[in-house]
Write a protein that binds this DNA or RNA. Sequence first.
DNA 1: CCCAATTAAGTTGTGCACAATCTAATCGGC
DNA 2: GCCGATTAGATTGTGCACAACTTAATTGGG
Lengths: 142, 142
Amino acid sequence: MDENLALRDQVCFALYSASRAVTGVYRPLLDELGLTYPQFLVLLALWERDGRTVSEIGTALRLDSGTLSPLLKRLEGAGLVDRRRAAADERQVTVHLTDAGSDLRERARTVPARVAEAAGLTTDQLRELRDVLTTLTDNLKG
Amino acid sequence: MDENLALRDQVCFALYSASRAVTGVYRPLLDELGLTYPQFLVLLALWERDGRTVSEIGTALRLDSGTLSPLLKRLEGAGLVDRRRAAADERQVTVHLTDAGSDLRERARTVPARVAEAAGLTTDQLRELRDVLTTLTDNLKG
DNA sequence: CCCAATTAAGTTGTGCACAATCTAATCGGC
DNA sequence: GCCGATTAGATTGTGCACAACTTAATTGGG
């Protein structure tokens, strides 16, 4: 069959569609925390290591300052982080969790498990999926 | 380990990141055709079956009218489709490829193969990935 | 037959993504 | 120690996504 453009055969569409579906499952759960999905990812990065610069967060999440600057401003407006010019290098801005931002971690702890349950895949399938996706991303952006 | 919030362990992040990486590989290729990635998906749907209504396209792509209406208006502005109120039911709008829109299919034919090559996965791995993602999406969205 | 409920598409408002550009701080070569 | 090049972050502009709402056409129960 010379047809290589069938929509349902495209890996790109499966990926795009699955990504939006997963975000859609997160949305009502994160809504309870007053977060969007990308904001949640930024907090995951900060809960792992606080006080990162904007570009360190960008490297971890593969997002640029055009996306992060306004997002961080909204997190600051929500009282979850604050931003300070680094003393050593005034070009850099370090992002620090506030007490409210740190405390949110407890409330967020159950979120991934609730999403994993809705996914209907086994833990093994999820790990394998994650590894293939990570390989794919590394091949493309590496 | 009681930590279940590490960024690199999250399937959601792997998915989100891979989806953006794939879109990023498509971008320069689609740029040559004057298309964005979602516009390309709409054209894939129309190349498969022309004259669909807005909501049929929305079902195929899992997108709502809030996304599709302005997107279709831009495709119409680019001269690739036209939109007509259905005679049988004036609420519906059917979307039809113009000659330019049909012709673009030839130029787009090689795009998926070029992306697949950049992905660095075997055809089998890609098919398996696609199937897991489709299962995941179906589980989440029903 | 009529009208309340439903349906299709469009509009509005918010928040990403990302390219392109801008400003300010720092670095490196001389 | 100066100045061109680089780097960090912010800004601007375009185009998705999606919730909430609006408008207009259709349907179905009484």
